[in-house]
Design a protein around this nucleic acid. Structure first.
Length: 465
RNA sequence: GGUGCCAUAGCCAAGUGGUAAGGCAAAGGUCUGCAAAACCUUCAUUCCCCGGUUCAAAUCCGGGUGGCACCUCCA
């Protein structure tokens, strides 16, 4: 497949470091709160990347960290009058709830910074020995001057340009404004770990270097995250990792665009900030997922209720098509395919091929969705309750293959409760007796119970309202 | 100041040189006891504007206009 690599600013053919295997590191959340829809985008996008690579036959190792120690964590713990550890435990649990609702699979490894202090210290030590880090009063900083020639290659900026925009703080003890903390000396009341530089805690960037290399090797395939992480976070990860090992770090860098609200960046202060927890109270989480996949992952997208409703309606079309096929399948004859059905089966394969081609083009999910909708139209026009079971299965299998990659259509075709079924049968009898008033009354009753009746040549079909 | 991105129908959106995918919404029709769903038809001679290159431009080049992001540990 082709992947747009932020490092080269080009689409490149994906060639894994080890044949048949892919190692992916995704920057995960700081677990100080419920995550917001902006966080949800990379989770969904890179979960989709993972699913697609698996579908293409790769053995994928997916690593996503939890940042469980930093300023925000400490602040939150103080606000809630508890410990940083308790905050982490709580919001990691909440992360998994929301992630599951969105169809985001658990990573193969979810490393936490505080469980990798040893690896972090070892990495800092290595940088210190190479002359790329220095200690001041218990803080340790990365020496960007000593790494001058390579620093800035991801963000496409050199140190001189960066300096002009850098904020120099009064009383800064760093040698250079662009130097960044690898280790922070303990301040009173903060959690701290023992280190060669005294009690302290890791800086933000170093955890991702230490944990990604631990689980994926010093050189691995894909590193991903939001665009805002390009600088400084990912730039610093490269400096730390390649500085320490002398080897290339990640081969491909993928960055998703932001979600805006009213064309403005979401922010708490602007009051246009939505957590996933809030949104799923009102909308189907699958509609949120489909919304995220409806545009290319690198484009900025606007979030609004209207767009979630649009996505929700699109999703409905997909579910209806699947459920209709499933209903037809129950009445369909077991017989060899006729000519038209054989042609249909071939088109099913073509649909999946078109889907794969779209996804292979730097994860063009919008184009991939078009392949799904075209297949759905084909199913709706070709398949009936008189189609061969094999034909219906071909249609359903192709649909499932595609929607599984996108992580949508995850809900089963619910079985109808017995009391609803009974009313549906009574209505069918009334209808047959041409007592339409009674039939309509019973249909309304069923509707009140949350089910919709649709008449078909093979009898009534029931679905949730 | 430095570094980038974007502009396609009422809405969302794909399309990077060969004559505008797909979805939502809307309208008409077929089917239906009525519905629902589905299907058919309609819905951008045109892709922000002005120039240029080319047999050919939404796509390439130049210049505008408008919007957004990073350089603030924010995904």
């Amino acid at each position: 497949m082709q992947i747009f690599n932020t490092m080269t600013r080009k689409k490149e053919e994906f060639v894994p470091v080890h044949e048949g295997k892919v190692g992916i590191y995704a920057c995960g959340p700081t677990v100080y709160n419920y995550f917001h829809i902006g966080n949800a985008r990379p989770f969904i996008i890179f979960d989709t990347l993972r699913r697609f690579l698996k579908h293409m036959g790769y053995d994928v190792t997916f690593v996503q960290n939890f940042t469980d120690i930093d300023d925000k964590m400490i602040r939150r713990a103080n606000e809630e009058h508890t410990t940083v550890d308790a905050i982490a435990e709580k919001y990691i649990g909440e992360y998994f709830k929301d992630a599951e609702a969105l169809g985001v699979m658990k990573a193969d490894v979810h490393p936490r910074a505080t469980k990798h202090i040893g690896e972090i210290i070892a990495l800092i030590k290595k940088l210190e020995n190479k002359g790329l880090a220095y200690e001041v009063n218990g803080d340790v900083y990365f020496d960007t001057q000593a790494y001058r020639s390579s620093y800035g290659k991801l963000s496409g900026q050199n140190l001189d340009d960066l300096e002009s925009g850098a904020r120099v703080e009064v009383g800064d003890i760093k040698r250079h404004p662009m130097d960044f903390a690898l280790w922070k000396a303990q301040k009173s009341g903060e959690p701290a770990w023992k280190s060669p530089w005294g009690m302290g805690r890791p800086g933000w960037h170093i955890e991702c270097s230490a944990m990604s290399m631990k689980y994926l090797g010093e050189t691995f395939d894909i590193h991903c995250g939001g665009v805002d992480l390009i600088f400084p976070h990912h730039e610093n990860e490269i400096a730390q990792s390649e500085g320490a090992t002398g080897k290339p770090f990640a081969k491909y860098w993928m960055h998703n665009g932001h979600i805006n609200v009213d064309n403005k960046k979401m922010s708490k202060s602007a009051g246009n900030f939505f957590t996933v927890r809030d949104i799923v109270q009102e909308f189907d989480p699958e509609a949120v997922r489909l919304f995220m996949l409806s545009a290319h992952y690198r484009s900025p997208i606007n979030f609004s209720r209207d767009l979630i409703i649009q996505a929700s309606n699109s999703l409905e079309r997909l579910y209806t098509a699947r459920n209709t096929a499933l209903f037809n399948r129950d009445h369909a004859p077991q017989r060899p395919l006729n000519e038209a059905e054989t042609a249909f089966k071939e088109r099913c394969q073509k649909a999946v091929a078109a889907f794969d081609a779209a996804m292979s083009d730097d994860l063009n999910t919008a184009d991939a969705l078009a392949a799904i909708f075209e297949h759905v139209r084909d199913m709706n026009t070709t398949l009936t309750a008189d189609s061969a079971v094999e034909a219906i299965d071909a249609g359903l299998d192709a649909l499932k293959t595609m929607t599984d990659v996108l992580g949508i259509l995850r809900k089963d075709y619910d079985s109808t409760p017995a009391e609803v079924k009974e009313l549906v049968e009574k209505r069918a009898a009334a209808k047959k007796a041409r007592d339409f008033a009674e039939a309509d009354r019973l249909r309304d009753e069923v509707l009140k119970m949350g089910y919709v009746i649709e008449d078909t040549p093979k009898g009534p079909k029931v679905k949730k309202a």
